[in-house]
């Protein structure tokens, strides 16, 4: 299958920080999850792939276009949907007006065609009923759906979503996941998230980043399999574990190299993720 995104050797520095360190990846149709702790470089990678920020080194193509040239960048942007980490809204706009505004930025200048498209995408995210409501009066989950609707304007072939489920309550999160799954049908979606549940439920593929580099690139099942035989239960915190935490039942769940005779548990995606981050620092010590 021809990849929607093909990147090799992407590097980017901010001052003394290496935000991207030789990142290579290929994205195909479906939802790919991008996991990593804070500061891992996820947002930077998304901004580079969304053509907002140029990389210092490396090359990539999106939908066959080279964003390194002004013409290529514009062609990519015509087929790109982008939902930033903290989407901003003009507070006095209604949901319809806001998406209409974004549609103008996406070069839909014919009023009739633009309004049809706005109605289509608001319908796609189940917001038709509140399209006339001011955004400041909508709930957090609804605002996030308005932002998703804006990203879907023009039926983009490549959709970039930066932590869209952050701050949503469980019900809203489930609803948003359904929308992402729907959006992933027939297009390529790159979903940055902290939540392994998002990846488990939505993604056919997962990329784990830490300290600007790709630590894992494979299927969720392969990431889970990394923890096979390396998760065990104990009544006290095991000092030999790379990470350990008390579960709801009171016992400790440990990941790492189990001691002889340990009570091994079935691994989860989260266990595989934690073990992959081992040595990368930030969130392993629980």
């Amino acid at each position: 299958m021809t990849p929607t995104v093909s990147a090799s050797g992407l590097c980017l520095r901010y001052g003394g920080t290496r935000a991207l360190d030789d990142v290579s990846l290929r994205l195909t149709q479906g939802v790919t999850g991008l996991l990593g702790p804070n500061g891992a470089g996820k947002t930077t990678l998304l901004r580079v792939l969304a053509t907002a920020v140029p990389a210092d080194q490396g090359a990539f193509t999106v939908l066959g276009q080279d964003p390194g040239t002004a013409r290529g960048r514009q062609e990519v942007r015509r087929r790109l949907g982008y939902l930033p980490q903290t989407p901003g809204f003009h507070p006095d706009f209604t949901a319809f007006e806001f998406v209409d505004y974004v549609a103008i930025l996406k070069e839909l200048t014919d009023r009739g065609a633009r309004h049809r498209e706005v109605r289509r995408v608001l319908d796609e995210v189940d917001l038709s009923d509140v399209r006339g409501k001011r955004i400041k009066k909508l709930s957090g989950g609804m605002r996030q759906r308005v932002a998703l609707a804006a990203a879907l304007v023009g039926d983009p072939g490549f959709l970039v979503l930066d932590e869209p489920t952050v701050g949503l309550d469980p019900e809203q999160r489930m609803r948003f996941r359904e929308l992402i799954a729907r959006a992933g049908e027939g297009r390529t979606v790159l979903l940055s998230t902290h939540q392994t549940e998002d990846v488990a439920m939505l993604c056919h593929r997962v990329v784990v980043m830490a300290a600007g580099a790709v630590r894992f690139d494979g299927t969720p099942a392969e990431l889970t399999a990394r923890a096979a035989g390396r998760v065990w239960s104990s009544t006290e915190r095991d000092p030999g574990a790379k990470a350990g935490w008390r579960t709801g039942l009171g016992a400790f769940r440990n990941v790492g190299d189990p001691p002889p005779g340990a009570d091994l548990l079935e691994p989860t995606l989260e266990d595989g993720y934690l073990l992959t981050l081992d040595g990368a620092g930030t969130e392993v010590a629980v």
């Binding site: 907002a52 514009q74 942007r77 982008y82 930033p84 901003g88 003009h90």
Partner: peptide, 17 residues
Amino acid sequence: DPTYEMAVVSPMHGFRL
């Protein structure tokens, strides 16, 4: 500009806006 990040990746050239 609250919509700056969305605007910058839109096909409308940033200088024109």
